[in-house]
């Protein structure tokens, strides 16, 4: 079985995340680059499945700048078998639609039985790419799974929300995305880190995907304006005195917290 995991490089969630106010794009230089933490959970699923099922190949696929090589290698250190990185000048600042089209083209180029994605990235938080890719490839999608069962023919899983749990299944080939409720990812172990450098790693431009470039090279959404987040205003101080109980309650009520 061939499982392709869509790996997104994001600025570290725990660091300061900034937007470039000239371009409106995420400022990837000012913070550490890491694999999106929900994607890591998807990788964990694919790699543990491969460990228990001989003949399974796990491919980490990413569309990013060349600098994302190190991040994608981390997926190989975790245990993915090979990496494919789509790099192209024309993709700089790609929006969700263009990203989905390029990923779909790359997936057709690579071939797959199952595509695994995070349900939404921790930076853009669009949450649309998995559905868009599934639509373009005309395959079923199982969104936001908390648990998964996979066999040669079908994938089943639980889509869990605060109110309901949906049990979903689809025949392969299919797309599935995992949510942050999914099992914790492993740490790349020391041997995995050393083995990662020896694993196959391809860097492809869009011309190599066998698709008409003209339909792939332009974003559809246009940014018209961008502004930085206003600085935080200083908070309200409630001084402990005979009125403080009432003051605090009034503050909470005013802000609809009680």
């Amino acid at each position: 079985m061939k499982i392709v995991v869509l790996v997104k490089e994001v600025p570290d969630t725990w660091g300061e995340r900034l937007l470039d106010l000239e371009t409106g794009l995420a400022d990837r230089v000012s913070s550490e680059r890491v694999i999106d933490e929900i994607v890591e959970r998807g990788l964990e699923f694919a790699i543990s499945f491969a460990e228990q099922n001989d003949g399974t190949e796990v491919i980490a696929l990413s569309m990013a700048s060349e600098e994302a090589t190190g991040t994608l290698r981390k997926a190989l250190a975790m245990g993915a078998d090979r990496g494919v990185l789509i790099v192209d000048e024309a993709l700089h600042g790609a929006d969700i639609t263009l990203t989905a089209q390029v990923l779909a083209a790359a997936l057709e180029h690579i071939g797959f039985d199952l595509i695994v994605s995070g349900d939404q990235s921790t930076d853009g938080a669009g949450g649309v790419v998995p559905s868009a890719v599934a639509e373009l490839l005309d395959i079923p999608q199982l969104p936001r799974l908390a648990t998964v069962d996979l066999n040669e023919k079908e994938v089943t899983g639980a889509h869990v929300t605060d109110r309901i749990t949906l049990s979903l299944s689809a025949p392969l080939p299919a797309m599935m995305s995992v949510s942050e409720r999914f099992a914790e990812p492993r740490f790349p172990n020391f041997k995995g880190i050393m083995a990662a450098k020896k694993k196959p790693f391809e860097v492809l431009g869009i011309a190599e995907l066998g698709k008409d470039i003209s339909v792939l090279d332009r974003p559809r959404s246009i940014m018209t304006e961008i502004a930085g987040k206003p600085p935080r205003e200083s908070g309200v101080k409630v001084i402990a005195d005979e009125n403080s109980g009432r003051d605090l309650a009034e503050f909470l009520k005013k802000n609809q917290l009680i």
Binding site: A77, F187, P188, F190, I193, M194, K197
Partner: peptide, 17 residues
């Protein structure tokens, strides 16, 4: 032996762990 490049990642991984 472990290359310095690999070692930097091993050390970073351990720090995170």
């Amino acid at each position: 032996s472990v290359s310095q490049e690999d070692f930097v990642e091993i050390l970073g991984g351990l720090r995170q762990f």
